[in-house]
């Protein structure tokens, strides 16, 4: 792995004001993304994974109250809005779960891609149109030359996501943030899009931050993974390591919950209870109320995310003790 991360997040906190009080959607996240790697952020609804993605681009509707987001050595939180706008779509691009929300329904897809190219790369109208067709071919949109003139509603969900990806990579960004890009798609189409993301990374060396709830998608696609729970990263490491030997009880629970490969009658091992509701403040470790391993002090002290060797981190007091013991 190259020494300098392209994205370096430290202590990021994003909060929302709601009737239920202050919701700490992102609650002190540290994360590094290196050039050309695919990092998965996996978590369940309400874990803060989308809020994290939107905070990086400063598109969150909440308030970023602390932390820094270093992108190529520059703290994005210090930039003026105009500078941020130049960066978005150019150096950092984002694709969404529902491409309909990010595509203008009244503009032909070729033109939409072309507009971004003209804005960021100052291409002529003609060059932009040619480049748009080229990009649509690169994302394997069938019959791309003709589809340039289609409106978004004339395309299927999978095809729209291809267009969104083409738009995302149009300026060959350093970082592509993909927020649940395949959740709305059927499995066979999802497989196509995941292949496309992987292929794109290989061709352009764009780093990808992939937000998903699906452990299968992470396993298939990501080099590294960060597991989020209640606004915090509870475990991170290389995908192969985390899946082979999960360290945080929440990760263990998630993996035990999937029915994949389990025989009928062999009960699943779900995580008991419910995640904390938005705005609820849990004393000690936020996962303790659902944790089968939790001990008395887990309910009193909140654990830190600590390095547990081999580039892996976990936020669990039980792991912390193991680490201290082996150190002493």
């Amino acid at each position: 792995m190259t020494p300098e991360p392209i994205l370096r997040i430290r202590g990021l906190k994003t909060q929302f004001q709601s009737a239920a009080g202050v919701v700490r959607a992102v609650d002190g996240v540290d994360l590094d993304v290196y050039p050309g790697e695919i990092v998965g952020i996996v978590g369940e609804s309400g874990s803060g994974k989308s809020a994290l993605a939107f905070s990086i681009l400063r598109l969150t509707t909440g308030r970023i109250v602390a932390g820094e987001v270093q992108f190529r050595g520059q703290n994005l939180l210090d930039l003026r809005e105009a500078e941020m706008e130049k960066l978005r779509g150019d150096r950092i691009a984002m694709i969404f779960q529902d491409p309909m929300t990010s595509l203008n329904p009244l503009m032909r897809v070729g033109k939409q891609i072309g507009e971004a190219l003209r804005y960021h790369l100052r291409l002529s109208r003609r060059a932009a149109t040619a480049k748009a067709a080229e990009l649509l071919q690169a994302v394997h949109l069938p019959d791309a030359r003709r589809r340039v003139h289609d409106y978004p509603h004339q395309l299927s969900g999978g095809q729209r996501q291809r267009v969104a990806i083409a738009m995302g990579i149009s300026c060959t960004p350093d970082l592509l943030i993909a927020d649940e890009p395949t959740t709305a798609l059927d499995v066979t189409i999802q497989a196509q899009i995941l292949n496309l993301i992987s292929e794109t990374r290989q061709r352009t060396n764009t780093a990808v931050l992939l937000i998903t709830h699906d452990l299968g998608v992470v396993a298939q696609l990501c080099d590294r993974v960060a597991v989020m729970y209640a606004g915090q990263v509870v475990e991170q490491g290389r995908t192969a390591d985390v899946f082979a030997d999960p360290q945080h009880p929440y990760t263990i629970g998630l993996l035990g919950s999937t029915p994949h490969g389990r025989q009928r009658g062999e009960p699943l091992r779900p995580i008991p209870g419910q995640p904390p509701r938005p705005g609820e403040i849990v004393a000690g470790c936020p996962f303790a109320p659902r944790c089968t391993l939790a001990e008395e002090h887990c309910r009193r002290r909140a654990p830190d995310l600590i390095h547990i060797g081999g580039g892996r981190h976990a936020r669990c007091l039980l792991r912390t003790e193991v680490a201290y013991e082996s150190a002493s």
Binding site: V187, T188, Q190, A191, L194, D214, L215, G216, V217, V218, A219, Q220, L221, T239, A240, F243, A244, L255, T258, H260, G261
Partner: peptide
């Protein structure tokens, strides 16, 4: 193809 398209939560298994 439906079976092979399911993302398996096991990084050691490829499609």
């Amino acid at each position: 193809s439906l079976l092979s398209a399911i993302p398996v939560p096991d990084p050691t298994r490829r499609r």
